[in-house]
């Protein structure tokens, strides 16, 4: 293959994959509506429990209002956690069509990465936007301001949050790619999908904000890769992580993404090669 003349040309297959996947996933509106209802309900239940805990001991490293905001953000970005391997790739592995994927004149890891990113974006946006509207606009209007998602404290927080949540998507996709690598290596989605969701859910802050874990665990929890999925962007949004702290958080997200992409790339190449040797 000769080097493409223009950089735009090189990106074209990836952009096409991104667009096609995005529109396809957007079509499942009924499922999105059902998902939104469920997410609101779970948000309410989590907040009720948190409120009960705070009533007994209100002075914590994170106020109840912040914990409520954190919970709503968690519901809005729920599907951004690396729950499963890309279902299309799982299907390709199952049917054996994965061999044809190797025939495309593109880098398989990059191509799959972009597909998985589009899949995630298309699932996140239709859920996150209405969830934001409900938690940040509708709730205060109905007099439930104390239980709503507050706006970020200042403009830098909003900008840094936007950067950080994009980094979270990139990081999550890198994790999805690792799971996909396991699927290709084991030729089954069952094993890889068994543990990954549980692990990422608790370690990202998806179940309990990481700041509410015992103090001695705090540094370790901040440094591990899953914090970049939920805890870092959310704390930036709430103004808890600003300035140097926010920069460190985003730096951690990017560093973990780089590491996981490198590892995932090598792992996937190795798995695919083995698949070809076996004639799979």
């Amino acid at each position: 293959m000769t080097a493409p003349a223009r950089p735009g040309l090189a990106a074209r297959p990836y952009l096409a994959a991104l667009r096609a996947r995005f529109y396809l996933t957007l079509q499942y509106r009924a499922a999105a509506l059902a998902g939104l209802t469920t997410q609101c309900w779970w948000g309410v239940m989590k907040i009720l429990v948190l409120a009960a805990f705070y009533r007994g001991a209100p002075h914590q490293p994170m106020s109840l209002g912040q914990a409520v905001g954190y919970t709503w953000l968690g519901q809005a970005f729920l599907v951004m956690l690396p729950w499963n391997a890309d279902p299309d790739v799982v299907e390709m592995v199952r049917s054996g069509a994965v061999a044809y994927e190797r025939l495309r004149p593109v880098d398989t890891y990059a191509y799959w990465y972009v597909r998985a990113l589009a899949w995630m974006a298309a699932r996140v946006l239709p859920r996150a936007v209405p969830m934001f509207l409900i938690a940040a606009v509708v709730l205060p209007l109905t007099g439930l301001g104390a239980w709503s998602l507050p706006p970020p404290p200042d403009w830098p927080a909003a900008v840094l949050f936007t950067i950080s949540i994009i980094c979270a998507a990139l990081l999550s996709t890198a994790m999805v790619q690792l799971v996909t690598g396991v699927v290709v290596a084991t030729l089954s989605a069952k094993g890889a999908n068994a543990i990954a969701p549980a692990l990422s859910n608790i370690l990202s802050g998806g179940i309990v904000p990481l700041l509410l874990f015992p103090a001695w665990m705090r540094l370790g929890l901040f440094l591990q890769p899953f914090a970049g999925l939920v805890d870092i962007p959310f704390r930036i949004y709430l103004g808890q992580l600003a300035g140097a702290g926010a920069a460190a958080g985003i730096g951690l997200q990017l560093a973990w993404t780089a590491v996981l992409v490198l590892v995932g790339r090598g792992f996937l190449a190795h798995s695919l090669e083995r698949l070809q040797v076996q004639g799979g």
């Binding site: 429990v49 009960a52 007994g56 859910n201 309990v208």
Partner: peptide, 22 residues
């Protein structure tokens, strides 16, 4: 695993708050 991490979350909250509603 999924249900276990749920209870791990409950444990973490008790470690911080001590009790819930008594």
């Amino acid at each position: 695993a999924n249900t276990f991490v749920g209870f791990a979350g409950v444990w973490a909250l008790f470690a911080r708050f001590g009790h819930i509603g008594g």
